[in-house]
Simulated assay, not measured.
Amino acid sequence: MLRIGLFLLTNLAVLVLVGIIFNLLGIQGILDANGVDLNLPGLLLLCAIFGFGGAFISLLLSKTIARTTTRTRVIEQPQTADEQWLVDTVRELSKKAGIGMPEVGIFPMPQANAFATGWNRNSALVAVSAGLLQRFNRDEARAVIGHEIGHVANGDMVTLALIQGVLNTFVMFLARLVGFFVDRVVLRNEQGLGIGYFVTSIAMDILFGFFAMMVVAWFSRRREYRADTAGAGLASRGAMISALTHLRTEAEAGREQPLPSNMKAFGIFGNMGALMASHPPLEDRIAALQK
């Protein structure tokens, strides 16, 4: 129910905000004055359909994409003591978090990392790298798994899909609005949609998409703190701090390797840039837990 409510409120916020922008900037009046026949509500609806549709298709395919891009092997029947421990730990922490048992997998990355994804909290995939199982002690690995299960329990995958849907809508809508303006008002084209519209729309898709990525990255950084708190609650605060400290040591030694770009936001460890970083600096995450 909370997720449905968030979805409806998000769409309402889009409609309200677009209306405010048009009124403040007078865009509708400029277009009308220049004889532009542009159905703004219809354009917005179309962009929302494609924007949210693309985001939720990606969400529904997230497990398949994750397994393919990371070469994750889902554990059907544990073959080793490590695999048995991993499955048992995921089962224990999932029950503690109140979610359905996720699929459990291992991906062949020598560096330490892990991720969780899936279209809902009762049909998720939790996977860890071979390197994490090899070099992290059981308490640290358990905390990392708790962090990923925290993402699932908090509904982060769905939340990010909603955010991405909103941003997709704005990017497509505003890009085409600017394209119409340039084509009809600046270039004075009156013969349908001209080259000015198509070139400008594509350029604005790229420009606005870049800023949208910053917004998604900001939300991603915020939810990492919540997932760290969940990992501390499911395992222990000391184990979560130890796991993050171990990750920082590996990063300083140059042994880190982020997940593929389409999976960075779902891992325990991500890129360390500034505005485009999917994860906060490890120092900040450790300090937040210590407080």
Rank of each mutant, 00 (worst) to 15 (best):
M1V: 14
T10F: 04
L12Q: 07
V14M: 11
L15F: 15
I27G: 10
G29K: 09
G29A: 15
I30Q: 09
D32W: 10
G35D: 04
N39Y: 10
L40A: 01
L45G: 08
L46G: 13
F52C: 03
I57T: 14
I57R: 07
I57L: 13
S58P: 00
S58Q: 10
L59D: 02
S62V: 01
T64W: 09
T69F: 14
T70L: 14
R71D: 15
R73D: 11
R73Q: 12
P78H: 11
P78N: 11
V87Q: 07
V90Q: 01
R91D: 15
G98W: 00
G98Y: 01
G105R: 11
P110L: 12
N113D: 08
N113I: 00
A114I: 05
A114P: 05
T117Y: 06
W119M: 04
N120T: 02
L125C: 08
V128N: 00
S129R: 05
R135H: 10
E140Q: 15
E140M: 14
A141P: 00
A141I: 03
R142M: 08
I145M: 06
E148V: 02
E148G: 02
E148P: 07
V152R: 06
G155T: 03
G155N: 12
M157I: 13
T159K: 15
L160W: 00
I163A: 15
I163D: 01
V166I: 11
A175R: 10
A175V: 06
R176D: 07
F180C: 03
V185H: 11
L187P: 04
L187W: 03
L193E: 12
I195A: 15
G196N: 10
F198P: 01
F198L: 07
F210Q: 13
A212M: 08
M213G: 13
A217Y: 13
F219G: 11
E224T: 10
D228W: 06
G231L: 04
A235M: 04
A235E: 14
R237M: 12
G238D: 13
M240S: 08
M240K: 05
S242M: 04
A243P: 02
H246Q: 11
A251D: 09
A251Y: 10
P258Y: 01
P260V: 03
A265N: 12
F266R: 03
G273V: 07
A277E: 03
S278W: 13
H279L: 09
Q290D: 11
K291R: 11
